[in-house]
């Protein structure tokens, strides 16, 4: 019975992927892509990777979907003149994708059975971090450097978006500019955020011991903030504001600072002294959650569109 469900899921994913690649209307493809992210989340759940499933649904479906929809809305006015990819280009891309997929499939099938794994080592070292969720331990202790670099990349992406603003608007506020704010949206933006913030804090907090964590919690926070901005209850902040920039870099900076403290306290970069490993990790996660929420929210809000006030 579960095999039937899995096969249906795989068939559905393949069909949806084909639809996204083939459909002519961009917006149609983006909406299908959001659905694809949610379905892929279901797939990860079937593989018992709840952390990945949550991240896929939040980032792959949610944030990427909104970013693409906004990009499409910006491109639409000039689309008639825009050059589309030629037939040959599409064939080339299809062949390249097929080759990558075939290579990945070969690599996965070539694994010896059972596949080599570090899972037992990760599980044995878990008590020394004070955490209960091995995924969080990998992200913030064993492979902390990767996580740190990831967060820095997010900020670089935001700088890339900001730099699309013309010089005289630099430091001004981005604008989500809905033409009309329908009443139900305003109602939702007033009702949902308290619950959303609670859920985000919960996701961050259980991340230490159960599926959840900074990225998932941060995305929910960002979604609530965007909802409030979209309903025009609060304007988007000016990007030159010091408090905005401090929240943006707070998480990575704290991470880096504690990483350097590791030289003095635990004999290595990004090493935690065992006795206070958990409070340190939870502290870093709290700051990272806020930074991620601010970064994702501002990424969607886009470059500055009004000049900074004096």
């Amino acid at each position: 019975m579960t095999l039937l469900l899995d096969l249906a899921l795989v068939a559905w994913l393949l069909a949806l992927a084909l639809h996204i690649a083939r459909v002519r209307d961009d917006r149609n493809a983006i909406v299908a892509f959001i659905g694809f992210g949610l379905l892929l989340g279901l797939g990860w759940t079937r593989l018992a990777s709840l952390d990945v499933a949550l991240t896929e649904a939040a980032i792959g479906g949610g944030v990427t979907g909104v970013l693409l929809l906004r990009a499409e809305a910006h491109l639409r006015p000039g689309k008639a003149s825009g050059a589309s990819v030629s037939h040959g280009g599409k064939t080339l891309a299809a062949i390249a994708c097929a080759m990558v997929a075939a290579g990945l499939a070969l690599a996965v099938l070539a694994f010896p059975s059972p596949a080599p794994t570090l899972a037992p080592a990760a599980a044995t070292a878990l008590p020394s971090t004070g955490l209960g969720n091995p995924v969080t331990a990998v992200l913030l202790a064993y492979r902390a450097l990767d996580t740190l670099l990831e967060k820095v990349v997010l900020i670089l992406a935001l700088i890339g978006v900001w730099s699309l603003a013309p010089d005289h608007l630099w430091g001004g506020a981005p604008s989500l500019r809905p033409d009309v704010v329908p009443e139900p949206l305003a109602y939702l933006a007033q009702t949902l955020p308290p619950f959303g913030v609670l859920i985000a804090v919960y996701m961050f907090w259980v991340g230490a011991d159960a599926p959840g964590g900074t990225f998932q919690g941060g995305t929910v926070l960002a979604a609530m903030w965007l909802l409030v901005m979209l309903a025009r209850l609060r304007p988007a902040p000016e990007t030159r504001r010091r408090s905005v920039r401090l929240v943006l870099i707070g998480g990575p900076t704290l991470f880096l600072a504690i990483g350097f403290l590791g030289f003095a306290m635990a004999g290595g970069f990004l090493a935690y002294p065992e006795s206070i490993a958990k409070p340190l990790i939870v502290g870093i996660e709290a700051a990272l959650t806020l930074s991620i929420a601010a970064t994702l929210g501002l990424l969607v809000a886009g470059p500055a569109q009004t000049a900074p006030g004096r």
Binding site: V180, P182, E183, P184, L185, Y187, L188, T191, L192, F195
Partner: peptide, 20 residues
Amino acid sequence: LLAQLSAATASQLIAGAVYR
């Protein structure tokens, strides 16, 4: 309850867009 809230809002928004 959360699904109710989001479904109700989404329906209202789409219906409003159709009406406009």
